[in-house]
Amino acid sequence: MKPEAPSAKKIRVLIAKPGLDGHDRGAKVIASALRDRGFEVIYTGLHQTPEMIVEAAVQEDVDAIGLSILSGAHMALFPKVKRLLDEAGLSHVLLTGGGIIPAEDARALEAQGFAKLFGPGTSTSEVCEYIERAVRERSSAGSA
């Protein structure tokens, strides 16, 4: 991905760590990789409630949210983020994430409207390319 012309709309991504999970390496690795690929990344730090995450997404008008979780609490926290996001009128926002998420949980979440979820060992370029493609697809579908 080439650096874009200054007039082009940058992709804005919120990277958030829900719950009491203190593992923040993955979130930071993904945030830095996205920055290095030309994304504008809003990082909110640790210990975010679903309410805080959705409120930040509203104010920042992001194109995508990436949740990072390794604590095992994803089935309690992720669906709540999705529900609040829909209630806030932000169903168009790409909702993705990663961390320690067993395959069957990932499938269940994807069925609830989550985009692809990424586990340990994922290459950062795969994540960047995926988010860019998915956001561009959504925006062209939205404005059509």
């Binding site: 290095d36 504008e40 990344v41 909110t44 805080m52």
Partner: peptide, 28 residues
Amino acid sequence: SPFSGGALLGDRVRMSSRLGDPQVFIRS
């Protein structure tokens, strides 16, 4: 970043005490 054109916007990390207050609006 002058190289990629991307940015890591981290000011919000320190601005969390009134998050959820409908009278406050923060934009990075």
